[in-house]
Design a protein around this nucleic acid. Sequence first.
DNA 1: CCTTTTTAGTTGACTTAGTCCACATTTAAG
DNA 2: CTTAAATGTGGACTAAGTCAACTAAAAAGG
Lengths: 147, 147
Amino acid sequence: MNKQSISDIRQFNRFYTKILGLFNDQILETNYTLTEARVLFEISERTECIANNLVQELRIDRSYMSRILRKFEREELIEKKTSLTDSRKTFLSLTQKGREILDNIHSQSDEQIEQLLDGLTDRDVNEICEAMALIQEKLSKAKMNSK
Amino acid sequence: MNKQSISDIRQFNRFYTKILGLFNDQILETNYTLTEARVLFEISERTECIANNLVQELRIDRSYMSRILRKFEREELIEKKTSLTDSRKTFLSLTQKGREILDNIHSQSDEQIEQLLDGLTDRDVNEICEAMALIQEKLSKAKMNSK
DNA sequence: CCTTTTTAGTTGACTTAGTCCACATTTAAG
DNA sequence: CTTAAATGTGGACTAAGTCAACTAAAAAGG
């Protein structure tokens, strides 16, 4: 394995850590943390989502997840519904309010991305998107092989 | 601005947040946090580094930085030296031990990157590196313009 | 079946990362 | 020369996240 490549990737990680850190700050302005936003998003993307899915997918402690979900329930962002076939499982779904909050978080996130891209041409932006797609595709493939 | 591009970038951000999260976990095994590792790295890269540089560059609270640096000093990872021309400023530098710890952190980080790339061809890895370089280059350019 | 193990989730107690604010110095600016 | 800005520290605090013990239900397995 090429040493230089590894070093390049470490550098990119530092670079992107800073960018994601900025984004994180903005999420705080919505009164939700990055972790909470990720949880909301995952619930929105899944059908018959259960807490344990999120624990595994997002690598969040179960007890912590339990508290986040309780908070969301109190704030009426989600609804819980016990599975009929397996009463250990609780299906999670966003309420209308939950969808609105998530949309809001996404809007703010979009705004910040636009700021980040400010001054670039459409072509530059497209190249960035292609580069990101390539990274995702290759790394996803890699992780499959190594698993 | 193209909506689809923004959405693609948000997706990449989610994807890369997970990857960096994994890396973060490994750093914890070295008994240093990601933040501490970033501080050590920045000190190593700068000549006449002062705490306030790090506060601004890494967006860390000043009091928190003060404590991190005190911890590093106690552990003899860094040395402090008051500036002769401005006694408010304290120059920070890594000790031999500090450099060793940082090397250690980097080694573990490298190992994890190798795991991430496991199963990819050299060509795939090269393409990833090029994609990362493109993203960095374009986004750095963008940020300059918007500032 | 009936015991054991695993899965899903909750609760309490705790640690630690990070923030807020007031303060002390020292230098720069009006 | 007074005021404002920059650098750093210390105390008190909040909130994010962890750990361990527990309940309840389902699955596994002899």
